[in-house]
Computed example of a mutant assay.
Amino acid sequence: MSRSNDAGHFFQTTSALNESARKASKSQNTKGNPIKLPSKILAVLADPENASQIYIAEAAGNVKKINIETDDILSTFSGPTAPLTSLAVSPATSTLYAGSWDKSIWSWSLRTRKPALRFAAHTDFVKALLALRIHDTHLLVSGSADASIIVWDASTGEKLHTLKGHTRGVLHLALDPETYPPDADVNVVTVFSAGSDREIRRWSVGREAAGEIQGADGVPAPVVAHETSVFAACFDGAGDLWSASADKTARCLARARGFEADTELVHPDFVRGVVVDEVGGWVVTACRDEEVRVWEKGSGELHHLFEGHYEEVTGIVLLEGQRVVSVSIDGTVRRWSLKAAELAKAIKEAEDERAGKIQEVEAGEKQEGLMTVEEEAELAELMEDSD
């Protein structure tokens, strides 16, 4: 055990103290041009109306709208006292939604920033949200740790449908773009749900009816491609689904093969988020080990690792212009570029930094091996005596 007069060190192991010291030291870095906030950040969402703005959900119960080019906090939406876990925005109604640990969904007018309808029917944390429009009906879809999905009339707060199939919590919802093309005249859409039961399920969702999509034999056919919880999923330009899991992998699930896994990206810890940059051919993942990784989409090879966060990365979003924004429990928002020149520069800087650290270690080891003039004289005298 380490000894200290600091009361904060009582009952802590040496390894725990070393870890605290490491994080304190790493917190001073400016990689990714961090925007520092006072609370843990649990979710991030791109502003659908402005490519330079994002929304973040805080453990303190606030949602903040941030301009990532100016670092300005443009708006703060408050009211909840419990942590917020998930976000959705409806541009058509200018409404912001946030799922909360208090088992409800909060909403605000984007124009006035005042609280609007509050949706309450779940019996556990709300973990995932989707806002969508079918004809003139605005729907809100929510997934919860209570293992249920609820479809709401977003305009009235009326609960329309409750969907059950997962045996454990629902962690993420993704809208299938093939059933929801821009300006499409559709009556139903397909929503994919990912859960802590390791399953990904598919649902047909509309105002009048909703239910799980059946397989060829007439029974639900969940996609099972991971060993444990699936935290996030997103579709790429080809319509394939990329998933991020607590089994320490991100995987590409090929639509043409019934969403069978055909690419596996192995990580050292839980994978919390995944996005796909079609312009550069990159897959970017967020990991519990504090890092953001860039992978070659075609080969599945690791191309670069963005270091900067000093706590678990809880979410990432891809913005126009090949920009990635990551958020973390460390309370920072960080920005990374996937443009060829800037990515090459980041790789070179990382290599130079690693080389510098190696040189420092080697210099330290060499210095430890040197003797003072007095020590050399004493050694020579001892050797003469031994003769």
Score class of each variant (00 low, 15 high):
Val333Met: 09
Thr14Glu: 15
Val219Pro: 01
Thr263Tyr: 07
His226Glu: 01
Ala145Phe: 14
His166Gln: 15
Asn187Lys: 12
Ala232Phe: 12
Glu199Ile: 01
Ala147Glu: 03
Ala254Leu: 05
Glu301Asp: 14
Ala24Ile: 06
Lys26Gln: 15
Leu37Ser: 11
Ser328His: 07
Asp236Leu: 09
Val89Met: 02
Gln12Tyr: 07
His226Ile: 02
Asn187Thr: 11
Asn33Gly: 14
Gly369Ile: 01
Glu199Trp: 04
Thr81Arg: 15
Asp262Pro: 02
Ala88Thr: 02
Glu227Tyr: 03
Leu338Ala: 04
Asp6Val: 12
Ser25Phe: 14
Arg272Glu: 08
Gly321Ser: 13
Leu42Met: 10
Asp72His: 12
Thr314His: 05
Glu19Tyr: 11
Arg335Asp: 01
Phe192Val: 01
Ser386Asn: 08
Gly99Asn: 08
Asp385Lys: 13
Thr137Met: 03
Arg198Ser: 10
Gln214Cys: 08
Lys23Glu: 14
Gln28Gly: 06
Ser52Gly: 15
Arg335Cys: 09
Leu382Arg: 12
Pro48Gln: 09
Glu227Ile: 02
Met1Tyr: 13
His172Ile: 04
Ser75Ile: 00
Glu49Tyr: 05
Asp330Thr: 10
Asp146Tyr: 03
Gly218Val: 06
Asp387Tyr: 08
Lys348Asn: 06
Glu349Gly: 01
Ser2Cys: 02
Glu381Trp: 07
Arg22Lys: 07
Glu212Met: 12
Glu178Ile: 10
Val89Glu: 01
Met383Leu: 13
Ala24Met: 11
Ala154Gln: 09
Thr70Leu: 08
Lys159Tyr: 01
Gly169Ile: 12
Asp352Tyr: 00
Gly331Thr: 07
Val89Pro: 01
Tyr180His: 14
Trp152Asp: 03
Gly157Cys: 04
Ala233Asp: 00
Pro220Glu: 08
Ala131Lys: 09
Ile68Asn: 08
Val275Arg: 07
Thr70Gln: 08
Ala21Trp: 05
Val230Lys: 02
Leu319Ser: 07
Arg118Leu: 10
Ile200Glu: 02
Leu253Asp: 03
Ala238His: 13
Gln53Ile: 00
His138Phe: 08
Lys248His: 13
Val279Cys: 05
Lys65Trp: 03
Pro222Tyr: 03
Lys64Met: 14
Asp47Cys: 14
Ser52Leu: 06
Glu365Arg: 12
Ile149Gly: 02
Gly364Asp: 11
Arg118His: 09
Leu87Ile: 04
Val274Ser: 11
Asn187Ala: 07
Ile35Ser: 14
